Amino acid sequence: MSKGDGLMRREELKDKLKTYMATIRLSGYESRMAYQFKADVEAYADHVKIDKLGNVIATFEGTDPEAPSLMVFAHMDVIGFVISRIEPDGFIRFERVGGISEKIAQGNAVMVGSEDGRFYPGIIGAKAYHIQSNDEKAKVDPFSTLFIDIGAVSERQVRELGIEVGCPITFAPRFVELLNDRIGGTYLDDAAGLVNLLQIASAIKAKPPKCTVHLVGTVMEEFNARGAMMAARSVKTDMAICLLGPGAGDTPDQKSVNNVVLGGGPAVTLFNFHGKGTLNGNIAHKGLYELLKKAAQENGIPLQRSAARGALSDTAYLQLENDGIPCLDMGTPDRYSHSPMESCDLKDLEQVGRLVAALIDSVDRDFPLHRY
């Protein structure tokens, strides 16, 4: 696409990514991110609302009322913790929210929320190496044994801050610029997708498409993967694209997993499945996938492919709404997902927005919604 396409450029994307990565937004407590994203997308859309559940919905009316509508979405929430107990000596016990491994928790800086919306810095305690037994050095401590230290000396001091059981905790925000246009830091999942939504909004503003488009920041993906489903009920979309890239398989520990690499361009997930009590996932809609491939080819954008077990997105439930909603998962590849320091390539991020904007521009009344 040309420089006249209205799309945000790489430096703009990086600045917005830094802002979103620093915005505290635990699943179920996304209000800061919701109001931030709403204010940002209002620069492009005439109709923006926050629904009852907390989803931010920006609607762009298409030029052809006969064309099917499309919802493009990214989740606003992140993984983290909630307070489960406050000890008499001021230490804080917690439960995890979303998929977090015990292996990456200890020794990390966190932000502990209060009931009035303020946040206080803390540390997930880690026993010093030189006082651990040999058995302790060889095992991972379960979450039930971990605690957070905010510097308080008593339970009373903690409660006087408005910190109570049920309050949110997230990893402390971090943002670092790595070599080769790569970024590291907290909660790229899914700050990257939210930035792409703004990028796409800027393109739609410059050139309205035939189809009506709903750009949505969704809630509670990390908790129950149902937020997008509720947004789709509100806008009654005909099809949907989830902006959530797969994990890259280019690190020493992942080279047998897939062919996705950082810097290799946008990646589409053709199959995902989560079987641990969920028994759900998504197989990419053929029509949307073919449209994505065509847009990539016509715009000279490389397209990577992924198929994996062990994970899912909101599309797992969204696809079952109404009489069936065609769905596709695609986005910016990342490394170290669901850890305190994730990583992505800004070149990939920029190309995702360009690719989805091109796909949107090609949707017309003849697009087949049926799977076959």
Rank of each mutant, 00 (worst) to 15 (best):
V56G: 03
R25E: 01
I123G: 02
F91W: 10
D238A: 07
C344S: 07
K255G: 02
F73S: 15
R32D: 12
V235W: 08
E298N: 13
M76P: 08
Q304T: 11
N282R: 08
H75V: 07
M239W: 05
G90H: 09
E136L: 13
V176E: 14
L179Y: 10
A357L: 02
H130L: 10
S144G: 13
S154T: 09
E321T: 11
M71L: 12
K139H: 11
E164W: 09
N224H: 12
R354I: 04
D238E: 00
Y44H: 13
Y120W: 14
G245P: 02
L318H: 11
E102N: 15
S362V: 03
P68F: 07
S154P: 02
E102W: 02
G184V: 04
G107D: 11
D5Y: 08
K137S: 11
K236I: 02
M76Y: 06
E87H: 05
G287Y: 05
D141K: 15
A240K: 04
G54Q: 04
F91Q: 14
G265Y: 10
D149N: 12
M229V: 06
G99T: 04
G151L: 03
K236D: 03
M220A: 10
K52A: 14
H47V: 12
L270W: 00
A138S: 15
D15R: 14
L359M: 15
M230I: 15
P302E: 10
I325M: 04
R174A: 14
T23D: 06
E115G: 03
T278P: 02
K294V: 03
K103H: 08
R159H: 03
S114A: 15
K139P: 01
M330I: 13
C211S: 15
F119K: 05
H75F: 00
P326G: 12
G331K: 11
A138G: 06
G353W: 06
D77L: 10
Y317Q: 12
L26W: 05
L312P: 01
P209E: 09
N282I: 02
T186W: 10
K127C: 00
H285Q: 02
G166W: 13
F175C: 05
L320S: 07
I325W: 04
G117E: 04
V260C: 08
T212D: 06
N322A: 13
G247N: 10
P340D: 01
Y44G: 09
K210S: 03
P326H: 09
I283D: 00
G247E: 06
G227F: 10
I301A: 11
V110H: 08
T23H: 04
Y29C: 05
T145R: 01
